[in-house]
Design a protein around this nucleic acid. Structure first.
Lengths: 349, 349
DNA sequence: GTGACAATCTGTAACGTTTCAGTATATAGC
DNA sequence: GCTATATACTGAAACGTTACAGATTGTCAC
């Protein structure tokens, strides 16, 4: 062992985390060879490859993220960008778990990048892109003409949107079919003999507001029911506001006998408003609501529900972003989740 | 300009992200000087310091995280470790926002590290520590003798726990005073004339199970009420299980006339169980429940609630971890949040 | 036996940062 | 006018990784 090798030995045998240098020393190879052996490069002998990988596994070698990131620019990070005021609560937790599930056996980490009402929604995106903090981004509250999607498309950074855009640009997305939801809800209410329907829609600026309205309108004319306008509030409004507006509406002469609600929390407010007006759910009015966890039937057993699975959405979004990062065509990474049937509550035995 | 400087210029004027080298070229200083000027090192002249900082701000210099991390080992990352099965939904979203709020104007990023039922809760912690992926860790579902806290304490990695431990070891935590909650709930129910109380407690393995039980027991003897045992389920059980057990309990001869519930979702199940047994809330039985968002009163207006603010918890936990990272003594980074009064619902005008 | 070529392996440089060990200049002491 | 010392700055090395440009073999054609 010459002086040079001795030095290497001294360095590599340190009890810190193993690095390529450690592996190189242990196997008697150069760091370059080790590096390539670990990533199955073609110019490495089969036996050497196996030997390196065995030793690496034995001593629990894990590539240093900072080293890789500095050298290659690859962060192995997916960022989930969330609005801290308007995001649906169960959405946040479920989508995180969905994403986690998918990236669990990849080297990716999930970072959460929040922004608040006061900020331009583009701010966090700009930050991520400018600082190169993530390989891929997931955004929600998608708009028909979404500056964030446009911005990332321009910079060529992989992303996926929860909800669709409508800019004639192609990018990965996952969406719930809110057109189908609203249409099914209308049909179900019509089937119960309801004729005057009100819709508590998503906020106008989001794409699925349009989808929801379209499904609502199309099905209304299909079944020959009519709309009672209820567009002074959206599911983004406070519980109190929705409750108050609902109560007001229900005290009018011409009041709805059916409600469709795009969010579970808002449904609580609608029901409260209905009861404030002295009316009874299931008798005077029926309500169809989306929900993401099976809790509404406990609230009022008369409620009619359609489930939206955010965990699945998170998983799909993660798959889409990873797919894009992996080189797949953005157009092939789009998915739409069909709503199940409208469910009435069945009392357990 | 000599050849050497020319090279520098060429490199530094590249339109990529500005680095120290860019700043060094622009200011005519060495990278070392620039680096030190930016962190207010003492041996830099006052004017130079100002000049460098001005230029840095002008061109929007941001230190490269990978560079810093590789050189110093500092990740500027806080990891929030979450159980993907048992975490309360609102807890996840609120705590994330609370943490975000605090780290917003720091260089820290928040990464979410999930683990599932099948795993040893120590796994994600080991991963974080071994790979040096975070400067600080936040864990929840804290146990009296918590191997995760012990492990991190041994390795000297800063962390904070949501909930306390009971191992005679000192570390930062934030906790809700569940002893006070249970005691107050008992007193309130006693004040309503309720005499036979049942408690739906947190799962036994968590520290606050003990706190809750102690508060419950102490207040019971204080007010001279008695306990109806209800320990076949905890708030970790499924809605269906809790509902069924509640209904069973309420059909017994000796049944509770008061319930205390440690979680809002579980309360929905308790109420359903009560009603399954043909009894009425507010008449036959009163229920005091914790909640983290103001929704329970919409569910049944007779419900009595105590609010627990998870966003605040997230903020406190983040402050604690950052404090520890910043060198503060762990013992000074502990906080306890006192429950407010038990609230009955007041109908809005 | 020579040249060509493939198959394996290797050293060096670079990513951007901080730290170490200086260097150069000015100021002060005497 | 000399040294000592403080002040302000600097180059080189290192963190762990990958890419580039070789280097060393052995094999084969002829």
């Amino acid at each position: 062992m010459n002086r040079h090798q001795k030095e290497k030995a001294d360095e590599a045998s340190g009890q810190g985390r193993p690095t390529l240098k450690t592996l190189a020393f242990m196997t008697g190879l150069g760091v370059t060879t080790v590096s390539r052996a670990l990533k199955d490069a073609p110019e490495i002998g089969a036996e050497t490859r196996r030997r390196v990988q065995l030793v690496a596994k034995q001593i629990g070698y894990r590539p240093n993220r900072a080293g890789v990131r500095l050298r290659t620019g690859k962060t192995n990070v997916i960022s989930l960008v969330l609005n801290t005021e308007h995001e649906i609560m169960s959405f946040v937790s479920d989508i995180i778990y969905g994403v986690s599930e998918v990236i669990a056996d990849t080297p990716y980490h999930l970072i959460v990048t929040p922004y608040s009402r006061s900020q331009d929604p583009l701010d966090p995106i700009r930050y991520l892109v400018e600082t190169g903090s993530a390989d891929g981004v997931i955004i929600s509250r998608t708009q028909p003409n979404d500056p964030r999607a446009r911005y990332m498309l321009e910079r060529g950074i992989p992303f996926a949107t929860h909800g669709r855009t409508d800019m004639g640009l192609i990018h990965p997305y996952h969406d719930f079919d809110n057109y189908a939801f609203a249409a099914e809800a209308v049909r179900h209410l019509a089937g119960l003999g309801r004729r005057r329907l009100a819709l508590l829609a998503p906020p106008v600026e989001l794409t699925y507001h349009g989808h929801t309205l379209a499904g609502f309108a199309d099905a209304l004319s299909e079944v020959g029911a009519s709309e009672i306008p209820f567009n002074t509030v959206s599911i983004d409004h406070s519980i109190e506001q929705i409750r108050m507006r609902t109560a007001q509406l229900m005290r009018r002469d011409v009041r709805p006998d059916g409600f469709i609600s795009s969010a579970a929390a808002a449904t609580l407010a609608i029901v409260a408003g209905i009861e404030d007006a002295g009316l009874k759910l299931g008798r005077d009015v029926d309500v169809v609501s989306k929900q993401s966890s099976e809790l509404l039937h406990l609230f009022r057993s008369e409620l009619l529900v359609v489930n939206e699975n955010f965990r699945l959405a998170g998983a799909e979004l993660a798959r889409s972003v990873l797919g894009w990062i992996g080189g797949a065509a953005p157009g092939t990474l789009q998915s739409l989740s069909e709503p199940g049937e409208v469910q009435a509550y069945r009392r357990p035995d």
